[in-house]
Nucleic acid binder design. Structure first.
Lengths: 195, 195
DNA sequence: TTCGAGAGTGAAACACGTTTCACTTTCGCC
DNA sequence: GGCGAAAGTGAAACGTGTTTCACTCTCGAA
């Protein structure tokens, strides 16, 4: 059941936090989760699949938290920036884990594309809710407009790009936050001019 | 010498074109290049290192080509977009190879960080030259301003993220080009307002 | 209570990246 | 021509992701 699955993800996350992608050895994950290797592979098609699942589990939690206490801010730009600051801190607080997950996402392994798409959709929903603000309709009620989907998708890409840059030591955590909120500001200001 | 090194890279590229990252088996690369496995590892510290080296070799060629025939366009935005269109086509023309290389770059393997930085610098130079236009001073003559470096770095990051999205089947080639040139437009328009 | 399906198990085996090492070849320099 | 260093060789070995398989366990439906 879900129980075993969560135990496996817990073990994977904990190993990733300690030593990153390479430290997540499938045999070790299985041992730490008190589960057979075969079970692990019944649940997750590959190591990348497993790490992306861990990421999505976290995104679910984040989704819930954001629904309970939506980001404050007078303008869409402020609210979106506030969300990204929070999300960035959440990732970077566990640097090794973050790197491991980024590597899994960027691996391009085809079997995980579906899980990544789900994750993307989840984050897009959060972003759109932040755009609309606490008084706007929920995404699950009012489907996103084309404009909203585009902004959400591009912002996510920007964020991802910044995180990869951070992972490769090209930019700092501070710059990740700055660049992303900068992108949010100009994207939100910029897109309406186009369409 | 360089000769052997190039033979190895040729073999790697050819295998990557056929079947992507997984099809690049170090033993096969060595065999195809008529070289011992040990030689391959003397030249490249890992598979990722090798693929990033292949990417940089291609970037060198691109650099040369751009210097000979700089991108046309009246505005910086147009010229930069034109460059990214060309670069994107160049990558995506060989989809399997592109995916393999992206995976290597995103792997976050520390030993390749240096090579990636060199590659980044190379592309940044091309972007800055495109920003300045055919009549502006060459990057090798007039060092880039802070503004130019920032724009170049952010655009590159965004382009990379879009390619990863394409690699994961989240967006199409067309969208990569559109989103990147859109990002170029608003970044170039947006940044001066800040500083 | 029994039955069947699906989940879990554990051990072995395989594939492939990477390391190691003793040996040979190549090459610039005296 | 002879020498030493660097490059190249090839084969074996190791670690780890992944697969396989025969077996056992769990649990809900009949």
């Amino acid at each position: 059941m879900k129980d075993r699955q969560n135990k496996i993800l817990d073990a994977a996350v904990s190993l990733a936090e300690e030593g990153g992608f390479d430290n997540v050895r499938q045999r070790d994950v299985a041992a730490k989760a008190h589960v057979a290797l075969g079970t692990l592979y019944r649940r997750f098609r590959s190591k990348e699949d497993m790490l992306v699942a861990a990421l999505d589990r976290e995104a679910q939690a984040l989704e819930k938290r954001m629904r309970e206490t939506p980001p404050k801010g007078a303008t869409p730009g402020e609210r979106v920036s506030s969300f990204f600051r929070m999300a960035t801190r959440g990732m970077i607080r566990k640097p090794m884990y973050a790197r491991a997950v980024l590597r899994a996402v960027a691996s391009g392994v085809p079997e995980v594309a579906g899980k990544i798409a789900v994750y993307h959709g989840r984050i897009a929903g959060i972003i759109i809710d932040a755009l609309r603000g606490p008084d706007g309709p929920d995404v699950t009620v009012e489907p996103p407009s084309n404009y909203e989907s585009t902004v959400a998708a591009m912002l996510q890409q920007f964020w991802f790009a910044a995180l990869v840059g951070w992972s490769a030591s090209l930019i700092t955590e501070k710059q990740v936050a700055e660049q992303t909120s900068f992108a949010a500001t100009i994207l939100i200001r910029g897109i309406p001019l186009e369409g």
